[in-house]
Computed example of a mutant assay.
Amino acid sequence: MNTNFDEVVDRFHTNSAKWDGISNDYGKDVIALSVADMDLRAPQVLVNKMIEMAKHGIYGYTELFPPYYEAVEGWFQRRFDWKINREWIVFCPRIVQAVSLILQHFIKEGDKVLVHTPSYAPITNAVTVNRRTLVESPLELKDGRYEIDFEDTEAKMREGVKILLLCSPHNPTGRVWTKEELWRLGELCLKYHVLLVSDDIHADFIYGDHQHTIVASLSERLAQQSIICTSPGKTFNLASLEIANIIIPNDTYRARFKESLIQAGIHNPTFFAVPALEIAYTCCDDWLTSLKSYIHDNLSFTKEFCKENFPKIKSIEPEGTYLLWMDCRDWSMNEADLKRWILEEARVNVSFGSSFGKEYEGFIRINLATPRRLLHDGLIRIAQVYKRIDTIKI
């Protein structure tokens, strides 16, 4: 399946959160390496299906039928060696939406919810906006690799945490949790009766010898204590089509979640969502292999560029995701400086560290799922400002 990932696609005037959003404030000359959607076209076979559906001309109410469930079941069996039962699969438009519904209907206001920081802001915000108590357990950066502080995690669970919101693989650090780490987390959740809600949206982007493990696949007991949130949205760049699969083996939890969907008025998928998922999960494995290779090459290119051009900015090696977490603290720990230099002067937008937790000023996150030329141009701009600022400091 041939795709020209080097093609630069103009995304202006498409209501793009990434491109139109920043251009409204800073102008069209800013290169966006920020929001975690891809600047790479979806597989052509999927695009062709969307064109076919659009030409139909009647965009009425939809329902879910066997081919949808078969596609989801096949994907998880084929990609993760996880056999799921059809009834476990519950449609929800977005994972963040599902997390909010779980917070609203599974625990009470004021109850404690644990996250490992740095943390993806929409998930963290879902806790506070729903008036639940956010409990943070910071990951430990050891020799350039983030690790879970299990003693801290257990101490906080012991104080009455009701839900653990796990990001697997982890956004923004790119960690792919090992089977042993997931076992330890799972055992703690079982010991302290904590519901484990795992956001696995980046699960299809794993590199090297690392392997993604779905925590619910480790044991029947863990499956009964887990809700797994998945979506083809990141993998195939379908975010705005709004389709996620919330996989809930526990009958009681599943019934409660389905009731919450009904109470929120969520039922029919959009007209384009289901055919997009079915094509993605049945016809696009080769495309995904090529995509991952391209993104990994972007990672290698970026790491080498950073070493040569701004050595004070350290890349945290990602094991998964298409995101790169970068430590700029040797350049400046002041986010106002970084915003001025990177966004205002270099004209490159990235995700700045404080959005992942106030203590992460001095970090940035870069999206690598973009054509090489855009990535190169953005890095060149940052390097030019870096050289000038570093010369002034000397």
Rank of each mutant, 00 (worst) to 15 (best):
E109N: 09
L33Q: 05
S300D: 10
L299A: 01
E359Q: 15
K393G: 00
E52W: 09
T117K: 11
W75T: 14
H193R: 15
I262C: 00
H202Q: 06
N4W: 02
R254S: 05
S240G: 05
P269M: 07
E70W: 02
A216T: 04
N130P: 01
Q211R: 15
A336Q: 11
V274I: 14
N250T: 05
L379H: 02
L40M: 08
V176L: 06
T252P: 00
L188W: 02
L188E: 09
V90M: 04
P172I: 10
H13W: 00
L166K: 03
W341I: 00
E136F: 06
L277D: 12
W341R: 01
I163C: 11
P172C: 09
W183E: 13
F106D: 05
H212Y: 13
G110F: 08
R78A: 12
D20M: 05
Q225M: 13
N298D: 02
I394M: 14
E52R: 12
N125I: 10
N4C: 05
F305H: 05
K191H: 07
L261C: 06
Q263Y: 11
N309A: 01
T62K: 14
V350Y: 03
L196T: 06
T213N: 04
F91R: 07
T117Y: 12
T302F: 09
L164E: 09
N4K: 13
R347T: 02
L134W: 07
F271R: 02
E70C: 00
D20C: 09
G74C: 06
V45K: 11
E52P: 08
V215I: 15
R221P: 01
V385F: 04
C328H: 10
F80I: 05
G60N: 07
V9Y: 00
D143K: 15
I243M: 14
H376Y: 14
R221N: 13
A54S: 15
F106A: 14
A54E: 13
I316T: 09
N2F: 14
N250D: 15
V385D: 01
E109Y: 12
V35C: 00
K28Q: 13
K112S: 10
D251L: 12
D204C: 04
L324C: 08
R175V: 11
D10H: 06
I266E: 08
L141I: 12
S219G: 10
H296T: 04
I107F: 09
G208C: 02
I84D: 07
I316A: 04
I107G: 02
I201R: 08
I123F: 14
Y61E: 09
L338Y: 09
N349K: 06
N85S: 13
R373E: 15
S290W: 01
C189I: 02
L196F: 10
K303S: 06
F271D: 05
I206L: 05
T282K: 04
S16Y: 06
V30A: 04
Y207S: 03
T153S: 14
N4I: 10
M326W: 01
W19I: 06
F12D: 10
I364Q: 03
Q263V: 12
T235L: 08
A216K: 04
I228F: 15
V348Y: 01
A223P: 05
